Computed example of a mutant assay.
Amino acid sequence: MSLVGEERKDFILNTLNLEGKVKTFELVEKLKVSSETVRRYLEELEAENKLKRVYGGAVKINLAREEPPHLKREELYADEKKRIGRAAASLVEDNDVIFIDDGTTTQQMIHFLLNKKNITVLAFSAPALYLLIDYKNKELFSGDVYFIGGKVNASQARVSGSMAERMVEQFYADKAFISIDGLMVNRGITSFDAERGQLARKLIEHSKQSIVMTDRSKLGEGQFYKLADLKEIDIIISDVNMPKEWEADLQASGVTWIHAM
């Protein structure tokens, strides 16, 4: 395959990652090649397990329809999550009250809160709680910590359910830092788990500002439960630049994109 051919296949995969599907006739127009050439590219990419061909085009392969355990998630995109965490912590101001949800990406921001003054953190995951307790015992974190109680999900090391939701309703925060399982411009932000999603929804409703933290693997993915439309989100922090194809939609929704370097 020539370099031009490889670049075309990269274009197909990038489009697929952002939109979840591609259509043959649209690729013919965009790539300026024949439908036979597009079909050949799709066949080659399918042979490499990079997509699944369907009538009229191809769709993205979703290898996991359920959320990986917490310990497994900690290993995925670890360096990228640290950068995202640092960028998120830079948005926290002295005296802020913040929700930090149960994601392994949001957990990373805790390491960068140590120079903040009088921060109140409301947490939902056991690892985040242990980390905050450890820093507090070492006198590296001077703020207050509240742990939201509820039904425990052992594999994800978090709480959720109606009890947790009722407890969240007792608080109002300046900022909510949300971890997601999928982001598409036409579907908004999504989650694998409905209970966890409902709790995250409460965080958004009870915060002045909603901040989504996500690595590149979630872009173009749509999962089972819808958390919110893009217009309900203020900021997205990711390890990559905003996809150019999304720029108009994000601008119309009033979303600011931060590239965590």
Rank of each mutant, 00 (worst) to 15 (best):
95 N>R: 15
71 L>K: 12
85 G>Q: 04
92 V>R: 05
62 N>I: 14
56 G>D: 06
88 A>G: 07
42 L>M: 05
88 A>N: 08
60 K>I: 03
50 K>H: 06
75 E>K: 08
61 I>P: 01
73 R>H: 05
71 L>G: 03
37 T>F: 00
62 N>P: 04
74 E>C: 03
89 A>T: 08
96 D>L: 01
83 R>T: 09
33 V>D: 06
74 E>F: 01
50 K>E: 07
51 L>V: 11
35 S>L: 02
68 P>S: 01
82 K>D: 15
78 A>K: 07
76 L>S: 14
54 V>E: 12
95 N>G: 15
81 K>F: 00
41 Y>F: 12
90 S>M: 10
60 K>L: 04
60 K>H: 02
83 R>A: 13
77 Y>A: 11
86 R>M: 11
37 T>S: 00
97 V>A: 15
38 V>D: 01
78 A>P: 05
47 A>T: 12
33 V>P: 07
52 K>A: 15
50 K>D: 05
88 A>W: 03
91 L>W: 06
88 A>C: 09
86 R>H: 11
47 A>L: 11
67 E>G: 03
85 G>D: 05
72 K>D: 00
94 D>W: 00
81 K>P: 01
51 L>A: 12
58 A>N: 11
64 A>S: 01
89 A>V: 06
53 R>K: 14
70 H>A: 13
45 L>F: 02
49 N>L: 07
56 G>Y: 04
73 R>S: 04
35 S>N: 05
47 A>Y: 10
39 R>L: 14
37 T>C: 00
63 L>F: 09
76 L>M: 14
55 Y>P: 02
90 S>I: 06
49 N>M: 07
64 A>T: 00
